[in-house]
Design a binder for these strands. Sequence first.
RNA 1: GGGGCGGUAGCUCAAUUGGUUAGAGUACCGGACUGUCGAUCCGGUGGUUGCGGGUUCGAGUCCCGUCCGCCUCGCCA
Length: 618
Amino acid sequence: MLIRSHTCGQLRDAQVGQTVRLNGWVNSYRDHGELIFIDLRDRYGITQLVFEPESGVARDVIEAADKLRNEDVVAVEGTVRVRIGGENPKLATGKIEIVVTKLEVLAKTDNPPFLPDDMVKLPNEELRLTHRYIDLRRPSMQKVLATRHKIYQTTRKYFDENSFLEIETPILYKSTPEGAREFLVPTRQVPGSFYALPQSPQLFKQILMVSGCDRYMQICRCFRDEDPRADRQAEFTQIDLEMSFVRRDQIMEMMEGFVRRLWKELTGFDVPPIQRMDYRTAMEEYGIDRPDTRYDLRTKDISEFAGKLDFGVFKTVLEKGKDRPKYYSKKGVVKALRVPGGAEKLTRKLTDGYTEFVKGFGAGGVAVVKIIKGEDGGPKLDTGIAKFLEPMKAEFLALLNCEIGDTVLFVADTYSVATKAIGELRQKVARDMGIVPKPGAEGGPWNFLWVVDFPMFEKNKDTGKWVAMHHPFTSPRDDQMQAFLNADVDDEVTIEGIVSAGYDIVLNGQEIAGGSVRIHDRDVQSKVFKLLGMTPEQAKEKFSFLLEALSFGAPPHAGVAFGLDRLVMNFVGTDNIRDVIAFPKTQIGADLMTRAPSFVPDTQLKDVHIKSLEQPKA
RNA sequence: GGGGCGGUAGCUCAAUUGGUUAGAGUACCGGACUGUCGAUCCGGUGGUUGCGGGUUCGAGUCCCGUCCGCCUCGCCA
């Protein structure tokens, strides 16, 4: 075989006159009879080959070249020369061409179901996933893989420089059925028992801290058997880390340094100091725990004002949980969103649609008012609930700093429903107003934000039980510890008010990392388990190894996990997570290329002591 | 588990209100062609309209079921 001397992206006019060998795929062919052009492609680029009788090339080489088709794999030898037909400015190698003297066809292809061409419209994703090896040949997919690789390298270098050890943790892990559903793995050795695939290496990395490893990192696969979304796969990758002898500020500094390094390396962008926002502010002003700060729309709780209006819908809602504390999830609230310039841009059709939109989040509807220019030149309330607001007009306008041309949208419901609904509405309105900048990868801003001071616990709305908002190993914030230890498990108001030492990094409205200071005290950990409704026996059954580890000298420690797939998505500018994973799965967790998951023979099931309730379809 | 969109030639799409033999571009096959670069020109092959049932004189089109893909709510400690 003619082993390559160069890649297809390498040759320039500096190499003119040299004899070279290239290997690659036929990207396209232009056959003029005796004169044949082939664009040869590999990962590095495209180089034009030319077969011409004048060069004295053997007859059979021309004849073989005549039969080449897209995606055949070939090796050639020839001479580099300046193109006779003029430069092709679209190619990096566009100044030169290879006059071929020898040709080896390394592999003929069947007619491919599609061509790996970024210039033409892509076939549907199902076909791309079925023949992933062809799809991955596309230059843009090669770029994704290279970007991902660069992130791995930058990550390892940064954490190595900061004394982190890369340590592998088990994939076959103990089932701890809390949080996400787990993938189970039966075992031949112990009949009737199962491993689970880890949702994350959380407990192993904490135990590595107890083990004296001090600083740990791993680029690890995590598994959650939950329905996917455009930005979520059941199998995904985290950059996982943990540090000993730090409090919140030190690990946040380490994370911020990593983000700064990553963006510098991958985009050249200097990440400015990242601002902090507490969870309550995020929920109050953005209606979501990961605010998109690229546009300045804010939501506001106007319950107190709304109570003064003679408007039945608001009055009814505000009766709910009237005497409960401000953030009680079932307390009735009225939330408002002032949209500057909305009076013109948010048409009746759009605002009518908002009611349907918020219904999707459980809210009843959206009330609307426009502030237009009155006959006296001053602001005038128009349409929607204008007549109910009219008696309190001055106070209303002042409350939201309204100006002529604004539209104000209202959602009245329980605290949790109204907050979620208006938060989602805020994002939809921003899109409708056309004020959402492009993502950073497309030249838009990179807006980073810390979100901190999350509640430790929230009530599950179905069971009424407490659940950990982050996870059950998250510590209360230092100044909350005493209050937490003193709190009675039934003291709902106090428990609800405990703030954790958790922190998230949000980028353009998307969570890219999350972590917390961990509990390193056995008694604190036991109290959390108790609060979550676990008996001491249950806690021991599930987490005895953790509680024991915490009993034998556990250092204070804290950690974080970055969602690697989402980082790649940001750098390559896609909102489809499957585009950044070499071999992704579909909505039902299928790998269309390998046809996993699949039925297995009964004999194989018997080995692992399993009997299936389902049979393969005939 | 719920809601929505989609599935027609290898691929991307079209097909009037339910009405003739389901078309076009591209790929592929054959032919012509010595400077192309999305080569061009001429000719040709190619269809279980995802699958199963139903309504109808007649179904790609309407109805029911089902499979697959995507988006989304729930879910994702």
